[in-house]
C-alpha cells in the first residue's frame, strides 16, 4: 500500500516548482478537491497533496499523504482525485500514499486555517519546530471560534475525528472542535 517516494524526475520544460504547466494545472485541479470530512477546506489547503507527475500521455501519478495513519478519509480522497482528473481528460490516474516526511498541522495553509475558524473549528497553533509534534505540554490558549474568548477548556483529547480535540468556551458556553497540533 505504501511505497517509497521516487525523486521527482526533472522535466525539460520545468518551471520553478519542477512541474510542467500541464502538471501544475492538474495538481491545481486535484488540490481543489474538498476534504471529505472537513469540506470547507481543499486538499491543497490541508497540505496533503505531495506531488503529481505525468508518466505518459493520459497517465498521471498523484502523491497524497495522510493526516493520521488511520485516517479513513484517505480512500475517498483518492477516489475524488481520480474522478476530477478523469473528468478533465486523464484516463489513467494512480494515487499513491506517502508517509515521509510526516504531515504536520503546519502544512495547513493560512487560508485553510481561516476557513476552519470560520466554520467553528479552532485551527491548530503553529508547532515549535523543535518540539516534534504530539501533545503540547503547556496549556496554550485556544481561542473560541464562536465568540473569540481565550477562556476555553479541554473536554477531551479526541473528538469526532482523530485530528480534533473537543473543547468548551467558558465565556459563551459553546463546545467546539479544535484541530489539534500534530
Amino acid at each position: 500500500m505504501v511505497t517509497p517516494t521516487p525523486a521527482a524526475a526533472p522535466t525539460p520544460a520545468a518551471s520553478d516548482t519542477g512541474l510542467t504547466p500541464l502538471e501544475e494545472e492538474l495538481l491545481r485541479l486535484a488540490g481543489s478537491v474538498p476534504d471529505p470530512e472537513l469540506p470547507m477546506v481543499s486538499l491543497a489547503e490541508l497540505g496533503v497533496m505531495r506531488g503529481l507527475r505525468l508518466l505518459g500521455p493520459g497517465r498521471v501519478e498523484v502523491e497524497l499523504t495522510p493526516t493520521y495513519t488511520g485516517c479513513p478519509a484517505l480512500e475517498s480522497m483518492a477516489t475524488d482525485i481520480e474522478r476530477i482528473l478523469h473528468d478533465h481528460g486523464v484516463p489513467e490516474v494512480a494515487v499513491r500514499t506517502v508517509l515521509s516526511p510526516p504531515w504536520t498541522t503546519d502544512a495547513i495553509s493560512a487560508e485553510g486555517r481561516r476557513k476552519l475558524a470560520e466554520s467553528g473549528i479552532a485551527p491548530p497553533a503553529p508547532r515549535d519546530a523543535a518540539a516534534g509534534g504530539g501533545p503540547v505540554p503547556v496549556a496554550l490558549a485556544v481561542r473560541c471560534p464562536h465568540c473569540g474568548s481565550t477562556e476555553t477548556e479541554l473536554l477531551s483529547r479526541f473528538s469526532s475525528t482523530a485530528c480534533k480535540a473537543l473543547r468548551r468556551c467558558a465565556a459563551c458556553g459553546e463546545p467546539f472542535d479544535h484541530f489539534k497540533e500534530l
Binding site: V2, P66, T69, G70, L99, R157, F158
Partner: peptide, 28 residues
C-alpha cells in the same frame, strides 16, 4: 461519551499503523 470517542479514535490510529505494517509483510 467522550471516552467512547477517545478509545475509538485511538483504535483507529492503531488500525492505520497495523495496515501499513502488515502490508510490509504481505496481504493485510
Amino acid at each position: 461519551l467522550e471516552e467512547e470517542v477517545a478509545l475509538a479514535n485511538i483504535a483507529l490510529d492503531l488500525l492505520g499503523q497495523a495496515r501499513v505494517l502488515l502490508s510490509l509483510a504481505g496481504d493485510e
